[in-house]
Amino acid sequence: MATEYLRYDKMVENALRGVVREALCQAAERGLPGSHHFYLTFRTNDPGVQIPDYLRGQYPSEMTIVLQYQFYGLEVEDDKFGVTLSFNNAHERLIIPFAAITTFADPSVTFALQFQPLSSQEGPTSMEEIEEEVTEEAERQAAKAGGAKQADDGKMGQVVALDSFRKK
């Protein structure tokens, strides 16, 4: 039987994505103070990424956007954000799931986070899925402990094959 472990690495990744979410929420509500600006690198081919086809053609695997002076309509949801940026004097709407982000940086304060893309990892990808996995693991461990206790108390029955009692 394989030993199962709590996936703290995934929990930490998800918690740090919450930092990105909160920074974007504050920027959406109040704008970017002082010299703050964000560099966000994301995987363009991840599920849920919505960008114009010509941008996907230019950036088939990864793209970096800058939120500094000219960004519009920044909207942040639990699992993604949307923003309108200007590309060659044309405004384009981008929708980017947090799971697609590989790097977040605010150079004005020398802060950066680097992520493993959630969509390419096995296992849970949201905080709810992580909590569900942790709860299920705790229940499995409790059931194992309860079964072992019953066996130790001698209260569990023993299965005997009836063939051993039959005359041949």
Rank of each mutant, 00 (worst) to 15 (best):
A2F: 15
T3F: 11
T3A: 08
E4S: 06
L6K: 11
R7H: 13
K10F: 07
K10P: 03
M11V: 13
V12Y: 10
E13R: 12
E13D: 15
N14M: 15
L16E: 14
R17H: 01
R17K: 07
V20L: 06
R21Y: 00
R21E: 04
L24Y: 00
L24M: 03
L24W: 00
C25N: 14
A27L: 08
A27H: 03
A27T: 00
A28R: 05
E29N: 11
G31Q: 06
L32W: 10
L32N: 07
G34K: 09
G34Y: 06
H36M: 14
F38A: 04
F42S: 01
F42R: 00
R43E: 04
N45R: 10
D46C: 11
Q50K: 12
I51L: 14
Y54A: 12
Y54Q: 09
Y59M: 00
Y59K: 06
P60R: 01
P60V: 01
S61P: 04
T64V: 10
I65F: 10
L67I: 00
Q68S: 15
Y69C: 13
Y69M: 11
F71S: 09
E77M: 06
E77G: 05
D79Y: 07
D79H: 08
K80N: 09
F81G: 01
F81E: 01
G82P: 03
V83N: 00
T84F: 12
T84L: 05
L85Q: 02
L85W: 03
F87Y: 13
N89A: 14
H91I: 03
L94F: 14
L94M: 09
P97L: 07
A99K: 01
A99G: 06
A100Y: 02
I101P: 00
I101G: 00
I101W: 03
F104T: 01
A105G: 08
A105P: 00
A105E: 04
D106N: 15
D106T: 05
D106R: 05
P107A: 04
S108I: 06
V109K: 14
V109P: 07
T110K: 10
F111Y: 15
A112N: 13
L113D: 00
F115N: 02
Q116Y: 03
P117N: 03
S119G: 01
Q121F: 05
P124Y: 08
T125R: 13
T125V: 05
T125I: 08
E129P: 02
E129I: 02
I130M: 07
E131H: 10
E136S: 10
E139W: 11
E139N: 14
R140H: 15
Q141F: 13
Q141T: 11
A142Q: 10
A142S: 14
G147S: 11
A148G: 04
A148S: 13
K149G: 06
K149Y: 14
Q150F: 12
D152T: 10
D152Q: 15
D153P: 02
D153K: 10
K155E: 11
K155R: 13
M156E: 12
G157N: 13
D163T: 08
S164E: 09
S164I: 11
F165P: 04
K167P: 03
K168E: 12
